Amino acid sequence: MEVRTIKVFTTVDNINLHTQVVDMSMTYGQQFGPTYLDGADVTKIKPHNSHEGKTFYVLPNDDTLRVEAFEYYHTTDPSFLGRYMSALNHTKKWKYPQVNGLTSIKWADNNCYLATALLTLQQIELKFNPPALQDAYYRARAGEAANFCALILAYCNKTVGELGDVRETMSYLFQHANLDSCKRVLNVVCKTCGQQQTTLKGVEAVMYMGTLSYEQFKKGVQIPCTCGKQATKYLVQQESPFVMMSAPPAQYELKHGTFTCASEYTGNYQCGHYKHITSKETLYCIDGALLTKSSEYKGPITDVFYKENSYTTTIK
């Protein structure tokens, strides 16, 4: 009895394709271990004539594949690729409408935090270190965002349907971005203890939790000093293409032309909904596939993004 075979390709990165001759009487799992086709788990399936010449994702289970996976995804987590594939199996079914010149995501599976993050990423200057993220990001900007969303979920250790947080998501993504040249110098002034300067680099240099107003941050924000008295913390120097200011959701007025974009969060910790506000020729609110415009805006804002380049204080 002759062994019926077909020729397929296996890959971990969709760049390096490895030619395989597979036995049609055995499952993919018996031949390769966990195997995925377009995100779908085909591990328990036997090869079919229609699979001839198709590319299958496999887990990096030998040295060659491990090197290829690390170079593309910059992670050695053995569960990463499987999590990416199972997320992709959902995100490829989502709709990605162009809204006001940006790629958004039609609401499904509690994905409003991903839509808000995706919209924000198209408006701030950011370059990702893992080629996987950078490639998928370019495709997302062009309207094909399924891979990018699935990668975000995998890097953030999230599953489809789980509630997510924009600030946490951005923080994970910033860790995989090139923020080497970003720098922030802060000064804390206390009447009792004097003053202390701190220099922050990388992710810490672009994120701040405690106030939404970048102007206020430049002037000074009140913080408790270690001595128990009130101290003032203010920005001395900022070198970065953008800054992200966050605070627990509270009524906040966004003035046209003073910011790049913002995240609105309605609801409580267990259950809520994100919308995205962007400042173009007027203010726009993007909620999944829905767009509304207004000249002014007041609502429960939790993150505001500002364009920056270089700032030095005039406070002496």
Rank of each mutant, 00 (worst) to 15 (best):
C225K: 02
L291A: 13
T266F: 08
I105Q: 00
K298A: 13
R83P: 03
Q230L: 13
G257R: 07
T260C: 11
A115V: 01
Y234H: 05
N89R: 11
Q31K: 12
P131S: 03
Q175M: 07
C225G: 03
P97F: 06
V203D: 06
G267D: 15
N129K: 14
R141C: 13
E144M: 08
A205E: 06
A231D: 00
Y36L: 04
K307R: 14
D63G: 07
T55P: 04
N100E: 13
S310M: 15
R4L: 11
K44L: 13
Q270N: 15
N309K: 14
E71T: 11
G202T: 01
T260I: 15
P248F: 11
Q122G: 04
E68P: 04
S246N: 01
V12F: 07
N14K: 13
Y36N: 01
P249V: 15
F9A: 09
S213G: 00
V166P: 01
K127F: 08
G33C: 01
V243G: 04
Y73C: 03
M245K: 01
G194P: 06
P34V: 15
G267W: 15
T35A: 15
E253T: 15
V221G: 00
L200H: 14
Q30E: 14
G267N: 14
L291F: 15
T43K: 10
I6L: 14
L81W: 11
G194W: 00
I223K: 05
V189A: 09
G299T: 04
A69V: 05
K307D: 08
E308Q: 08
K93V: 09
E253S: 11
L290S: 15
S181G: 13
M245S: 01
L173C: 06
T11E: 00
Q20W: 06
A177T: 07
M244I: 07
D41A: 13
V22M: 09
G220S: 05
T198P: 02
Y265R: 10
Y172A: 09
C193T: 02
Y84H: 13
K275L: 02
T211D: 03
G39A: 14
C156E: 02
L88I: 08
Q251K: 10
G210F: 00
I105F: 04
F174G: 02
L118K: 06
T55K: 10
T282E: 14
L81H: 00
Q20N: 13
C193Q: 04
H176W: 15
G228S: 02
L126V: 13
Q31N: 11
T260M: 14
